[in-house]
Amino acid sequence: MKLLVCISKVPDTTTKIAFTDGDTKLDEKDVQFIVNPYDEWYALVRALELKEAQGGSVTTITVGGPDHDPIIRKALAIGADDAVRVDAKAQDAYYTAFQIADYAKDKSFDLILLGKETIDYNGSQVGGMLAEMLDLPFVSLGSKLDIADGKATVETDISGGSEVLEVQLPCVISAAKGMAEQRIPNMRGIMAARTKPLNVQAPADVTPLTTITKYTLPPSKAGVKLVDPEHMEELVRLLHEEAKAI
């Protein structure tokens, strides 16, 4: 089975977010970058498990400059066989999906996996766009994935429960929590990652459809109003009369 996993670079989950250049850019000072957790913990690890059980290969693809190489090496250390980096700044989800589709269109991947969203732009866009561009079925937010007889069985959380879906390969599936367990790369993996192929490709020519013009931070809370633990009727009164929440 030939698997492609889309890997994105994001600020670490503990990052305190700040902006520069008139609030148009993330302030990258002191920011640690990681593989997007949904791409790494769930999509990549499940792809590796499927390969280990059924044979095949796992390729990762990333759209970004040379500053993305460390997170790509991390994915190779965890166990991907080879990696592709489209050497361009990802401008919007459409631009990114177009680059991945352009690479994947003639490679006959059986399955394209990616995280349900990145933890920076929270777009949930690339998977669906890729599926449409490649004319493939798409299942989003899979929390369980099994492959047998050329079909994928995917479980996904719905309002108040879950549903089990079946889809013919090839297809695109986005991964949510539960699809796999995070793997920590071992020393052998880290050593091997140094010599695994990381192929750099020139981008296809495409115009983005959206652009971010400004970032703002959420307004800070007015300050917490402390209520005496002995007087919970006061909390109930405040929630009813002041906050109008009950």
Binding site: F19, D120, K214, T216, P218
Partner: peptide, 19 residues
């Protein structure tokens, strides 16, 4: 242009749609 939460709710972005 529209706004949306980004960085998992730690900030908001104003995005312009060009089409």
């Amino acid at each position: 242009s529209v706004t949306k939460p980004v960085f998992s709710g730690k900030a908001f972005a104003t995005e312009r749609i060009l089409t």
